[in-house]
Design a binder for these strands. Structure first.
Length: 425
RNA sequence: GGUGAGGUGGCUGAGUGGUCGAAAGCAGCGCUUUGCUAAAGCGCCGUAGCCCAAAAGGCUACCGAGGGUUCGAAUCCCUCCCUCACCGCCA
């Protein structure tokens, strides 16, 4: 959520930054300003009435204690009470309208983000490793099916299309990857592990900005008051919701393994082959709650923490800086990490396995997540998150990259202690 | 699922219809004094919003959340959320 004060004081700046996204959202600013003016007007009026009521009510109290008549004043206050009821309704309606508008406006892209219309304007900031030399790479579906690593028919039988059922060595590989990543982040990168509930309240979903805008992409329960979390970003970022942290406690760094649930409505036909885009997938998440002046350096280190996973596994990848037009709703700046999948598409493709973002105070304002600074003032924290990393795509890239001419899959050295073998055959 | 007890400021904890944004204690900040690894005294000390060009100042709201009763609600009523205890059920 954007700061209404910023909108009020620098509307041109806000409009200009929003315009770089190319979604036409800058036109909403006029509405916000109009409603804001109305809201304040009705609020001032309401407060005037309340003040009057308070004054007269005290007078009544005084008269009664002195046994003096007060019927006249009581009638007067009763009338003011009616006006207050109307005024309250008006003020609340404006307040609600303003909030709804603000909840549906994207974050402002950071000034360093390249301006562009869509993904074609994204910028590759670095590439790590090299494409593996494979004579005739087989894709992960063929590999996985042949080696019995997962069974998509079983998954479909249980849950329909868009689900995975890992089996045998595949299930074990999944487990090994989870442990490998969590161990890495907790021991080497200093994150605190949390194993959270997978079902979250509506408020939490609003806090991290999945709602209200993207409700149709979410799995709702209990009359949509609870949701299956689409990412552990929701749980981890909301841990300190509505709290005021001590500056000394920042940065807070959390990691979690959770399944993630997404309807992927409208995504039919896109990247749908095999296990690349599914309704439920496992993911290791990294979340940081930090002081505002540190958030951009924290974004760099968070991204580096996620990259380390791929480096240790010896997987070729690149880091892409998203342009303004490709940036997610709440993000001010995002780096995507894309791992090389030799069997995807025609001759290989990069698959997004992590999206590392700085939300600045966009989420913090929604969830009233603050810290007390050195002057004792309450200020909003900045929040960041990224996958470290998402499992099915990592799984696919891994088995494709390490496939051997004899049809087996070699296990990278760093993963062997977790997997308990050096190959799958 | 049932029964009961609760949710008050950073913390502890008073307060059952009127000058209560809320006693008191602790913590914190400032000053004074005495001095030495601290004590005493005094003062300050919640959050948010609105008015104001701004400062000063003023006003409003907030005692888990939302409604209601009333001239007036932390206080009475209703609904919901959460915490704790016991019972039931259960992996």
């Amino acid at each position: 959520m954007l700061d209404i004060r910023l909108i009020r004081e620098k509307p041109e700046f806000v409009r200009a930054r929003l315009a770089t996204r190319g979604g036409g959202e800058e036109t909403k600013i006029d509405d916000v300003l109009r409603i804001d003016a109305e809201r304040r007007k009705s609020e001032t009026e309401l407060q005037r009435l309340q003040s009057e009521r308070n004054r007269l009510s005290k007078e009544i109290g005084g008269r009664r204690s002195r046994k003096e008549p007060s019927e006249e004043l009581e009638a007067q206050v009763r009338e003011i009470g009616e006006q207050i009821a109307g005024s309250t309704a008006r003020a609340n309606a404006f307040d609600q309208e303003q909030r709804n508008l603000l909840l549906n406006i994207s974050n402002l892209p950071h000034e360093s983000v390249p301006v562009g219309k869509d993904a074609t304007a994204n910028r590759v900031v670095r590439t790590w490793g090299e494409k593996p030399q494979l004579t005739a790479p087989v894709d992960h579906v063929a590999l996985g099916t042949k080696l019995n690593l997962f069974n998509l028919e079983w998954a479909a039988k249980l849950s329909g299309s868009g689900f995975i059922c890992f089996t045998g060595a595949g299930a074990k590989l999944e487990r090994a990857l989870i442990n490998f990543m969590i161990d890495l982040h907790t021991t080497e990168h200093g994150y605190f592990q949390v194993s959270p509930p997978f079902v979250v309240r509506r408020d939490c979903m609003i806090g991290t900005s999945q709602l209200p805008k993207f409700e149709s992409d979410m799995y709702g329960l209990e009359d949509n008051q609870l949701f299956l979390a689409p990412t552990a970003e929701v749980q981890l970022t909301n841990l300190h919701r509505e709290e005021i942290l001590n500056i000394g406690d920042l940065p807070e760094k959390f990691t979690a393994y959770t399944p993630c649930f997404r309807r992927e409505a409208g995504a039919a036909g896109r990247d749908t082959r095999g296990i690349i885009r599914v309704h439920q997938f496992d993911k290791i998440e990294l979340v940081k709650v930090v002081a505002p002046d540190k958030s951009y350096e924290e974004l760099e280190s968070l991204t580096a923490n996620a990259e380390r996973v791929l480096q240790l596994l010896g997987l070729h990848y690149r880091v892409v800086e998203l342009c303004t037009g490709d940036l997610g709703f709440g993000s001010a700046k995002t780096y995507d990490i894309e791992v090389w999948s030799p069997g995807s598409g025609d001759g290989g493709a990069f698959l997004e396995v992590s999206s590392c973002s700085n939300f600045e105070d966009f989420q913090a304002r929604r969830m009233q997540l603050r810290f007390k600074d050195r002057d004792g003032k309450n200020r909003l924290c900045h929040t960041l998150n990224g996958s470290g990393v998402a499992l099915p795509r990592l799984f696919a890239a891994l088995i494709e990259s390490y496939q051997q001419p004899d049809g087996s899959v070699r296990i990278p050295e760093k993963l062997q202690p977790h997997f308990g073998a050096d190959k799958i055959e």
